[in-house]
Design a protein around this nucleic acid. Sequence first.
DNA 1: AGTTCTCCATACGGTGACGTATGGTTGGCG
DNA 2: CGCCAACCATACGTCACCGTATGGAGAACT
Lengths: 187, 187
Amino acid sequence: MDKPARTALDRDAWIRGAIDVVAADGVDGLRVEVLAKRLGVTKGSFYWHFKDRRDLIDAVLDTWREGRIRDIRKQTAAEPGKELEALNHTIDVYAAAKNRKGIAIEAAIRMWARQDAPTAAVVEEVDATRLDCTRALFVALGLPEAEAKARSVLLYAYVFGFSMMQCGRFPMDPAKTRRWITERITR
Amino acid sequence: MDKPARTALDRDAWIRGAIDVVAADGVDGLRVEVLAKRLGVTKGSFYWHFKDRRDLIDAVLDTWREGRIRDIRKQTAAEPGKELEALNHTIDVYAAAKNRKGIAIEAAIRMWARQDAPTAAVVEEVDATRLDCTRALFVALGLPEAEAKARSVLLYAYVFGFSMMQCGRFPMDPAKTRRWITERITR
DNA sequence: AGTTCTCCATACGGTGACGTATGGTTGGCG
DNA sequence: CGCCAACCATACGTCACCGTATGGAGAACT
């Protein structure tokens, strides 16, 4: 009889801690011994749960990918006839940048993806899913395929670029500006 | 008589090499001994030209800041009456992403800015300049101040977000899509 | 009660990188 | 010719981190 319950939980604790570190210092800043100290244990624990540092990074990546895909699916879910609300909601949620940690993780993983091909594939998958979800909403609104695609690209590039720009400073642009931009993208 | 000509040139060679490394591996990947090997010399040379690693990073940052500010000024320069062309040209140049290395450097420095306050200030300055240059073009086109600002934010966020998205893959969107988006932003 | 399995601590060797100290080479100049 | 300054190589001590080997401590099972 295997009882991986506690083991699985501890592995997840490592992954959660790793995600915090990645958000703060990037993937390069993710060091086994440093993370161990943060968690109040030693390397001995780590190398029981993980094969090596790369194994942890892959686990972080997997967790991130599934979380992001589940999230975009949830945010863009819309009952028939409420697609416009869903789009506005999506822009609001993602461009609001209320979630600083999420943005930091996104930036870190994207940076890491430049050097690591498997990570690049994960990022590409997340991007494709996000583009597809919003594109589907525009299509449901009756727009032709080409325009729906163009609008989804604009939406995503804006939201993403915008969140990347304000790395640390306060919003800097009034709600009025955001409203104008949202209108411009969705209508 | 001081003859800093050759000295200054060699220091610049180090900076140029450092920029290449930053583009490829990020600021964290910028290591003194590794860069020295790349340049065919040893650390001895480095510590003659620079105080320490931080000194090199600051020099890279300075070079980047001045280059980016000069570039956006150049790209957005427009004779009276040709502001729309200038805007289209700007979007084309920056979103075309023909310059992969430039994008990589931008991403790396932005990532680094999350951990380093002085760098964050530099990034902020570049952002502000870029936003201001495009905003001025919209104002020259007769748009009210608020809308000019909103459009410049949309333009910049799009261009920047777009270039960040395709980290490695081929364009993926037809010229037609880009045209539609450009129209949407500028008119 | 003894054994086994899970989980973690400790100790070790190895590597890569930082910054310093010091010596050598070259070119210009008195 | 001899000297000095610019420029670089070599050698050194130090540190952070990786991954492994090994030894427990405690729960769980028999």
